[in-house]
Amino acid sequence: MFYLASKSPRRQELLKQIAEQFELVSADINEVAFKDEVAEKFVLRMAIEKAQAGLKNVVTINPSDWVLGSDTIVVNNNNILGKPKDFEDCLQMLSGLSNKKHQVMTAIAVINADTVLSEVVVTDVVFRAITDVEIKDYWQSGEPQDKAGSYGIQGLAGKFVKRIEGSYSSVVGLPLYETEQLLLTAKAQSKKLTLEGAK
């Protein structure tokens, strides 16, 4: 069996494109960076910890069962941008991203009882200039409130994006190519274990 340790409907929809069957499992963790923890290490740690928490919540786990954990962060000038606390926070974040390039990092971790397969995908996103009025209107739409960096590229904020350099699906929340490659590796390892056990 294959499990997704995520409540995100965006990740669930993306995963359906590459995985025929999977079940959801809860994975609540403390999503706070360590002091001086660099962004790439933080997002990878979050993905692994989500997968590990999900694995603990699987009632009956078999050696061939795998859990996928994923985390996405927005990084501007090496600063990690979380979800906005209020409108002022959103205004500060999006003003800082206006007319600039920033990075969106998504980490994926596919684990079982013995193995951790993981990768971090970094995509550059370039915003056009955004006015304070546009940011206020966007905030009032309700979309930014639960989004890292105060925006969702797949929604109304798509009009702010001049271009991206990298994986679009990664910016949405799950890099499809890289995730499929990890799942294929996991499947091959499970098949190998099954064959060895049958000897």
Rank of each mutant, 00 (worst) to 15 (best):
G166P: 00
L156Y: 15
M93F: 14
L91F: 00
G149S: 12
S64K: 12
K83L: 04
L94K: 09
D114L: 09
I164A: 05
G155K: 04
V172M: 06
D71S: 07
S170P: 09
V120L: 09
L94D: 06
V161I: 15
I108R: 00
V126I: 13
S118E: 14
I130E: 05
A113D: 13
L94S: 07
V75M: 06
L156E: 10
P175R: 06
H102Y: 11
V75F: 01
I80S: 06
N99H: 10
D114P: 03
K136W: 13
V75G: 02
V172Q: 03
V116Q: 15
Q189N: 15
V133Q: 15
T106C: 08
M93S: 09
G152Q: 02
Q181K: 13
T115H: 10
F127H: 06
T72K: 07
V125M: 08
S95R: 13
T185V: 09
N77R: 14
L193I: 10
G96P: 05
I111Y: 01
F87N: 04
D132S: 14
Q154C: 04
K101T: 11
S150F: 07
F87Y: 13
C90M: 07
V161N: 07
W139M: 05
L68H: 05
N77C: 05
K136C: 09
L91M: 02
I111E: 02
S98F: 06
W139T: 02
K100S: 15
P84K: 04
Y177G: 01
V125W: 07
L174I: 09
K136R: 13
P144C: 12
D71T: 02
S118K: 13
L193G: 11
T185D: 07
M93C: 12
N78K: 15
Q154E: 08
Y168A: 04
V74F: 02
G166Y: 00
E165F: 03
M105P: 00
P144E: 09
H102L: 08
V126Y: 03
A186G: 12
K162M: 09
V104H: 06
V126R: 08
L184H: 14
V171K: 02
L193P: 01
D86P: 01
Q140F: 00
V116E: 14
G152I: 04
N112Y: 04
K147P: 12
Y168H: 08
T72S: 12
D71C: 08
L94C: 09
E143G: 12
V74H: 03
G152W: 01
R163P: 02
L68S: 05
L156R: 13
T131Q: 00
N76M: 10
R128V: 12
L183S: 01
W66I: 08
W66M: 10
M93I: 10
E143C: 13
